[in-house]
Write a protein that binds this DNA or RNA. Sequence first.
DNA 1: ACGCTGCATACTGTCGACAACTAACAATCA
DNA 2: TGATTGTTAGTTGTCGACAGTATGCAGCGT
Lengths: 232, 232
Amino acid sequence: MADQTAGLRRTQLGDIAPIQNLPLRMQIAERLRTAIISGRLQPGAVLVETALAEQMNVSRAPIREAIQILENDGLVETIAYKGKRVKPLSAREVEETYGLREIFEVSAAQRILDRNVSVAPLWECCEAMEKAVHDDNYEALVAADEAFHRTLIQLSDHELLLSLWNNLYMRIHQIMALRNRGERNLAEIAGNHPPIVKALESGDREIATQLIARHTRALAEFDPASIAEFPE
Amino acid sequence: MADQTAGLRRTQLGDIAPIQNLPLRMQIAERLRTAIISGRLQPGAVLVETALAEQMNVSRAPIREAIQILENDGLVETIAYKGKRVKPLSAREVEETYGLREIFEVSAAQRILDRNVSVAPLWECCEAMEKAVHDDNYEALVAADEAFHRTLIQLSDHELLLSLWNNLYMRIHQIMALRNRGERNLAEIAGNHPPIVKALESGDREIATQLIARHTRALAEFDPASIAEFPE
DNA sequence: ACGCTGCATACTGTCGACAACTAACAATCA
DNA sequence: TGATTGTTAGTTGTCGACAGTATGCAGCGT
């Protein structure tokens, strides 16, 4: 039941694709989420249900439910009877987002140390990272970096923490997409990883904590002017 | 436009009240949320949209949206095309919930120490607590306890953390309601608070962290058998 | 007895139309 | 002029009906 007129219609976000048998709200939510975290839909952008419904050739109900989901993700904000928009990102929120990341990573490290978990998977991530640096493959580098941090959280063996992490990382993706390409020093920042793993391996709590905190703060550096403010 | 037939109808969750001008979905979400965290709707309970709609005399749309909101809160779980139910609480989830609480409180304490924030508000909470103990007022005791912990988070001056905390505490309320009255030692546990504040005041990082961790773990004690498991 | 097929049922998912609300602007009157 | 009140346009909120999906059971064939 593919939509045969898809190619003819002016389409900003594209038609919904009948790829899977998931409910429409999920396909729509996924599509909107991608648009937001990629920066295509910028903070402050207004989401009008009727317009989206028409663009995607669905009724308003699944659109509304999809937007609800995104609201849960913290990507969209609703003002009753007035409208919905992509949540504005204040400098403070960006800062707090990275602050939370630091909290999560440091806490995960504590748990790893408390439980004597093997850090072998982290070494693997470091190797993947080195390879990406050697190949000068930026895509792979970003992926490997994310894998390293996610692995750190996973090793802490705390599912709730992991799900919070996934949500947080989504917003970090959005922030990174909105920045004017901070890729320059990513490779250099990647060099921080092995010492962290080494500290974890040798059970050095203090050092590990400090290294992670410093690493996270390095990642948080950004040009505040590059994130537009949408007050009101 | 109050519903004049409200008194006649059999009603399990009660009719929705036209108290405020909030959208129905919010009133319904609030009502369901209360029912869940109070334990009236137990984990595993199935939520049937049509039934709820009939009970509350509204259409299914706001019911669906309300359930979405509760899903975001982590209180309800949806299985596409099958149904929705109050999220089952495994022993592991309960444990992780308190683990997260520990992470949040310890991290908040670190931030308070990092920034030399005045802990005066915490002393006030301690006083309210003592008064409740002296009056043998259990309600006030619970409220004061919650106020203490929320204040700790608030002093860390991190809005994202605070909102995560509010969500977490909601689920802790639910867990407490499902336990067979663990009130016995609450007064005694309350005695842990002043030492924590003292440690924070004197900037003793190590002690503060340990006291908070121990306090949180004391709160987490529970009879695993008192929380039903709903596998499948 | 066993497995398959095809209803029947009880839900959730989706739709299109209508109601309610807000904000902005025009018209009215002191 | 300036404040107040209609009025209208644009949006979200709500509804009732219909379509789609999963599950259990009856009936059939082997």
